[in-house]
Each structure stands twice: as C-alpha cells, then as structure tokens.
Design a binder for these strands. Structure first.
Length: 554
RNA sequence: GCGCCUGUAGCUCAGCUGGAUAGAGCAACGGACUUCUAAUCCGUAGGUCGCAGGUUCGAAUCCUGCCAGGCGUACCA
C-alpha cells in the first residue's frame, strides 16, 4: 500500500517536471509516513518541503504542482490535500486495505518476512557467561535480546548463527577449581582459609559434596594441582550442563557452542599474536606483551600476555573474533552487558588489526536489570553468592512473562523487573494482554467451527462487510507489521515488535468489546472471522520472534 | 580527570533516526458482563521533553556547553 503511494508520488513529480511545472527533476528518496493524527490522512509525504531548496519554490506551490499530476489508476484515493507547511496527505478507500487479509492468510507464518538480509551470513553471539556459576537475571535479559535479534534477522533474510562462547580456560576456571577443592577439604575436616577471591555460592559446596560421593578422600592423596584441575573440570562441566538446561527452559537453542580452550588447542591464539608481532603492533614492556590498540583508536594499549606468562582473555578474544570472520560471517554481533562497554574499542581494534573492517562488528550493549519484588529491590550480590538465578525467575513467573518483560524496553535503558508484577494477570502485565488476544480469537474460532464455519476463505463480498472504524483500524495496523519488522531488523531492536504487539492487541480488544464477530448475519460473520483470524496470525508471528508462546486457551 | 549510556505526565516507559496538536500503561475518579473468555473495554485528568545556546521551513530527535544519575577507565572478565 505504502509502496503504491510512493510510486504514485514519483510518477506525479516526474510528470510535473515534464510538463514544466517544476524546474528540477532531482527528487530525493521519497518518504511516506503514516501520520500520527488520523485527520491527517492515511499517508503523508514531506517531499514538497524537502525539495523546496532544489526547486527554488515555496513548498505549498510544489505540492500543488505535484498534486495536479497525480493519477490514480487503481482508484484507491478518496481525497488528497495540502496541509500545514506543505505536507501532502492521502486518504485511501477502505477496500484498498482488504488485500492485506489475503496476504496474511496466504503467507501465514511467513507474513512480515522480507529478504533485506539477502542471504548474508551473520552471527549473533550472546549470553556467553563464564561457566563459574549459574545464569542470573542479567544474563536472562541478554539471552532474550540476543535470541530475539537473531530470530528477527533470520526472518528478514539473513543466514543467522546463534553462538555461545564458553570461557572454559584461564584464571576463572582455575579459581573455580580452587574454590571447589577448598570446600572439599573443608568438608573432610581440614582447616581452610576461604578468602573473598573465591566463589562463594552454595553450589560450590554442592560440587564438593558430589566429588566426595564420587571419589571419597582420594583427592587429598595426590598432587594438589591435579586435584584442583579435576575439581575445575568437574564443576565447569556440570555448570555448563546446567546453563544449557536453563537456556532450554528459557526457550533458547544455540546453533554452536564455541570453546575458548579450543582456540589454544588449535594454536590460533599463538598464531594471532605472532601475526600481530609480524605487523609490529605487539611490543614488550615490563615483562609483558602489549598490543598497540592505541593505533586503532583505543585509549591505551592492552596486555595480551602477562608477566607471569599467562595470556589474558583479550588474547583469546583477538583469536576468537578473527576466527569468526574467517568462518565467513559478513557481520558479527556480540551481545554484552553494559558494564563491558570499555571492551568494545579494544575488540574493534583487534578486528581492524586482523585485516577486517571494524564496521562489520557490532556490539549490543544491554543495560542492567533491577530485580524487584512488589516494588522493593531484591538484594543481589554476586560476591556474597546471593543472587536470584534465571532459573528461579523462570520457575516463579514463567518463561513467557520473563522473556516478554525483558523485551518491553529498549535494551539501552535499564529495566526494573518486578517479580510480583510479572505474575499479575492484569493490564499492567503486558504479556497476558497480548496472549489473551490469541486465546480469545481461538475461542471465537472454536465457536465458529461449532456453527460450521471452518475453512473461511474471505471472498470479496464477505470482506466488503468490514466497514467499522475499528475494523479499518485493525487492517491498517496489520498492514504496518512488515515495516515494523524491517525496522526492528535494521536497528536490531526487538522491543519495536513488543510495542507493536501491544498496540495491535489494544486495537483488537477495543474491537472485540464493541462488535460481535459471530452474529446472525452469515456474510458479516465470515468477513469478520476472516479478519480476526488474520489478527491471530500476526500476533502469533510476533510472539514467536520474541520467543513467547501463543496459547489457545488461558 | 577522561570515555560510554541515561534524563519525556505523579510512577514505568514509547516516540517510526528532523515533521503537523509529544503518546501508551499504571496510579486517581466515573461507567460497561443473561452475549464469541471482564486476564477486557469506554470516558475524565495530567507536560518548561533536565537547563542554555546553535543548525533550518520545522528540534524530544542533530551540534556545543553546563546540571543530575548509572557504568567503565587492571598484567579481572
């Protein structure tokens, strides 16, 4: 529809030039928008204002010239007008909205899809939490955003891979092993010093118990480092398994789990460092190896190998990101917590130094989550080992509510997550508001089938019965969905879909309360049922991209 | 100190990358269920878009400078 209007304007403008009504044939990209205010029409363009300087004419004059040459072969316009400083407003007939219903039913689960991605390979890496403890709520938000962004991109024609990067190497894993081993010794009656540097949570103790059940006291009799590394491996494996389970319960499946350790095993970390050394962007200072990130716009140079010979995480991150591009991804998206933002420029530096354009790398920085219960903050301290895990939250409020709420804000703004609110079944909880539309329509469809109305095909006569303002409004809103999706993909902002769904839901609920779908009039009932089933499909499609279910009953 | 993010109705947030009279929900008040699910709807009220300049036909949106809050600024991740 919008495209039709754009073509119509372009043709009119060109004709106006040919007839000599406009001095220039240079027209910018024509922008058409849906005005916020209904009285401003169904579509509006600002072309007259934008071209005023090129045409050297007042905007309203230009608008007049263009309007004079507008032709309407399909007979879709009811009215055009020039308004305000030079807007051209278009009013279209209600029947020009009907085809969207056919489109929705025909494309079904693909309605809204596009090919703007053009088959480009793109990778979205998210969560990537260290396997040193369970996932907490913050990870949940990152997971919801990352998964949804990936779904949306995939739906828009990109070839998307969802990847989880496992930090299964390095100091934190070592610390994990030491933490478990200390608890192990403690449980076996040894006196131990358990400092703040170790992981404090109860789960550490549980691992120690498990190991005692499995191995008894034997770990005390062997070389301590061997025991520690055993503990580390044991704990990490179990934690990773738990993380996978939590993510599955949260509705998330990764395409690939990428091990940090594998980068060392394959020699890629060493190779990356050597590569940089050859390029003369690695140097030695104070016994450590530094990468000259300042040459690529970073604030200061960064250490890749410490004085003690240990590599930093940054070293493997260099190799990791290089590897991503070598795997053929045209674009690489990392989803990080906002507290990692200082890390962006150094990774971007590494990518550029590896010979790839840094613009192919994007970071989605997800702001933190404040967990509340009934408006009061829930104490969370990772250090003390007291934090509410993602799995606790999912257990308490359900996957759907959790995922939806995580996506009710732009990822850039902090989020208050209230556990009580998330469980409420009222209007302040938008999940149910949207899901309820789906359930209600299912219910109507059931009733319809009881009356023998299955297999509704939406013939012209039935659709022509749709004339109520609420109906036209629903059609218009549904017609906008593909564009919402494209923008959501373009800006990688899932919350646009969330807000759209709430808006569509509001339109539906208003309609439902005012008009009956199934009535004594069979033709009208058919038309309305056809429309309402289309609403249901759009809702389901949107929810699917957000990872939220669309229930038949509530 | 430097860097990034945020500041919009009493509260929580949108605002389609510069458009017309800045929008929702909650909270407050008043209404609507013998009907396809009231987990819903309808109505009323609420604003110096943090402050001050600048850019232009036009600014919540872009630029600069302040103010306030959050985060970062490791041979931690």
């Amino acid at each position: 529809m919008k495209q039709k209007i754009i073509n119509l304007i372009r043709n009119a403008a060109t004709r106006a030039y040919e007839k000599g009504d406009l001095p220039s044939k240079v027209f910018p990209k024509i922008e058409v928008e849906v005005p916020k205010i209904e009285s401003h029409g169904d579509f509006s363009t600002n072309i007259a204002m934008v071209t005023a300087s090129v045409q050297k004419m007042p905007p309203r004059k230009i608008a007049e010239s263009i309007l004079k040459h507008v032709t309407d072969p399909d007979n879709i316009l009811t009215k055009t007008e020039i308004a305000g400083p030079g807007f051209i407003n278009f009013f279209v007939t209600m029947w020009s909205w009907y085809p969207v219903l056919h489109k929705i039913h025909q494309e079904d689960i693909r309605y809204g899809a596009s090919d703007i991605g053009n088959g480009k390979k793109i990778q979205v890496e998210f969560v990537s939490s260290n396997p040193t403890g369970p996932l907490h709520v913050g990870h949940g938000r990152g997971a919801a955003v990352g998964d949804s962004v990936a779904n949306i991109l995939r739906f828009c024609g990109y070839v998307v891979q969802k990847e989880y990067y496992i930090n299964d190497s390095g100091r934190q894993i070592d610390t994990l092993g030491r933490s478990v081993f200390l608890r192990y010794k403690e449980l076996l009656g040894k006196k131990v010093q358990f400092s703040q540097d170790f992981y404090q949570g109860d789960y550490i103790n549980d691992f120690a118990k498990n190991i005692i059940d499995l191995k008894g006291k034997t770990l005390l009799d062997q070389d301590e480092e061997t025991s520690i590394s055993y503990c580390a491996q044991f704990a990490a494996e179990h934690i990773i398994a738990q993380i996978r389970q939590d993510l599955t319960n949260f509705g998330i499946e990764f395409d690939n789990w990428f091990s940090e350790q594998s980068l060392y095993d394959s020699g890629k970390v060493g190779a990356a460092i050597n590569n940089f050394r050859d390029k003369d962007i690695i140097y030695e200072k104070d016994g450590a190896l530094w990468f000259k990130t300042t040459e690529f716009g970073d604030e200061k140079d960064r250490v890749v190998v410490r004085k003690n010979g240990q590599t930093t995480y940054f070293a493997s991150d260099i190799a990791y990101h290089m590897d991503k591009f070598e795997r053929g991804f045209e674009r690489v998206i990392d989803v990080w917590g906002a507290d990692h933002h200082g890390y962006i420029s150094r990774v971007a530096s590494a990518i550029e130094a590896s010979g790839f354009n840094r613009n192919r790398f994007n970071v989605i920085l997800v702001q933190l989550v404040n967990l509340l219960r009934g408006g009061k903050p829930v104490a969370m301290s990772t250090r003390a080992g007291e934090f509410v895990t993602l799995s606790d939250v999912v257990k308490e409020v359900g996957k759907d509510a959790a995922r939806f709420i995580f996506l009710t804000r732009h990822y850039d703004s902090p989020l208050d997550f209230d556990l009580e609110l998330a469980k409420k079944k009222t209007n302040d909880n938008p999940v149910f508001y949207v899901q309820y539309v789906h359930a209600r329509i299912s219910s109507i469809a059931r009733k319809g089938r009881e009356r023998g109305m299955d297999d509704i095909t939406g013939d012209q006569r039935a659709m022509a019965m749709l004339k109520e303002p609420e109906e036209i409004n629903l059609l218009k809103t549904m017609a906008r969905y593909p564009e919402v999706l494209r923008n959501s993909a373009k800006f990688m902002e899932p919350h646009r879909i969330t807000f759209y769904l709430m808006e569509l839901s509001a339109c539906f609920h208003a309609y439902y309360n005012k008009h009956r779908v199934l009535s004594d009039d069979p033709l009208l009932s058919r038309g309305r049922l056809y429309m309402v089933l289309a609403v249901q499909k759009v809702i389901r499609n949107g929810l699917t991209l957000l990872g939220v279910s669309a229930p038949e009953r509530m």
